[in-house]
Design a protein around this nucleic acid. Sequence first.
DNA 1: AACACCGAAACATCCGAGGTCTGTTGCAGG
DNA 2: CCTGCAACAGACCTCGGATGTTTCGGTGTT
Lengths: 243, 243
Amino acid sequence: MPVTDVAIDKIKDMIISGELAPGDRLPKEAELAQRLGLSRSSLREAVKALCLIRVLDVRQGDGTYVTSLEPNLLLDAMTFVVDFHRDDTVLDFLAVRRILEPAATALAALHMSDDDITELGQLLGELEDSPTVEALVANDLQFHRKIADGSGNPVLCSLLDSLSGPTARARIWRGLTQEGAVAKTREQHSAIYDAIAAREPELARSWATVHVAGVEQWLRNALGTADDPTVPDSDAEPAAEAS
Amino acid sequence: MPVTDVAIDKIKDMIISGELAPGDRLPKEAELAQRLGLSRSSLREAVKALCLIRVLDVRQGDGTYVTSLEPNLLLDAMTFVVDFHRDDTVLDFLAVRRILEPAATALAALHMSDDDITELGQLLGELEDSPTVEALVANDLQFHRKIADGSGNPVLCSLLDSLSGPTARARIWRGLTQEGAVAKTREQHSAIYDAIAAREPELARSWATVHVAGVEQWLRNALGTADDPTVPDSDAEPAAEAS
DNA sequence: AACACCGAAACATCCGAGGTCTGTTGCAGG
DNA sequence: CCTGCAACAGACCTCGGATGTTTCGGTGTT
């Protein structure tokens, strides 16, 4: 195994073992390199890699630090990964979002504070009467992010955040091409908000399902893959082997 | 922004734009470095970082290649990230798994081929009568992996795979300390298998919920936080309306 | 045709020399 | 005593070259 990969594991272990706590500063490059038994160049490669996934944070002129390691920060790095799947597997991501979003919305109906719910309502009001598609989608992202945050589960929230990225583009596309999509989105958002404000988790869940499924259904048709077995529709083809 | 980060973005763009397709070989270090306008050292840092998240694959003596970029490969890198959350946030990960696993199991009941179901059954039979806890958990992981794979959604499968890692430790701990946990796990696995084999998605979903919730409940008690209704009851999620 | 050897190509690793940014220190002035 | 500016030291950034290792493919022998 390359020395750089060893270094990555070593640093990872130092963090997991507790030798390096979140916020701690690492020894200076030269020192750490000697301690791990490799050159500064190789060590820098390791540090850079850990930097990309938000485990380390290097500040020029200051030093290298361990990040807070909070789930939202680390899962957030997943956005980078998800970026590589733009067109082909968007449906798969959307299918997962369709599973998580309703659950998160139901949780939000139970856990959100009254203040948060008020802010959620304000978000809906901020939108103009005839918003641009971009403004609508931006508001859409904020709306769902606040709900995900309201679920009280940071892991769930970050995951949804990552999944929302690639599907946002699809939503913009939809807004531009599908008649009535904007109005429908606003209606559904209001319904979701009402359900949360009424503390009705099951109702909130159902509206969220309808909401996400709408995008999913449209996208599936738009992609012309009416026969894609990846998505949970009503029935499946039971392998025509036995019978 | 550091030149290395610029290089990362450049390479990322080259891939997303299609200039570099999965499986393609990158220009040699020196050449690419000159083209991107930086030194080999800095380029190597960028490549190493992209390597960690499985976007690039470097083979000494051969060259640097773009990976297949399949969701399972990229999401798999998330396991590395998840490793940093061992004790504190396991409950949050488990809560997400409790949302995804039942959905995946229901999908599997609809989409798995008869052959796959046969293999799933064999997996259950492979276990001895009095397995060690380690063997049981290993079998447990395989069992759920096969089901996740059977959902037909590679993103969902990879995500569950990543989430299973940190919770596996918890499951081992449980097997060692809770009386009857082993027997209960086997019973529930059989029930899940039966529901899938019978093509009963809702039944499969419910058993999966019960199964994961069992671990979650135990863990919550074990951690002494008996007061966290993180997840409401989750049925009525119309991922599949076959009956 | 199968196998062993050899050389070219490409990555791995290391090193040392500047460059740049940041936080701190110390002095002068209000 | 407090404030503001300038110089300093520490730490990371970038570079380019030299040397070691591994892999691939061509060549020659058996």
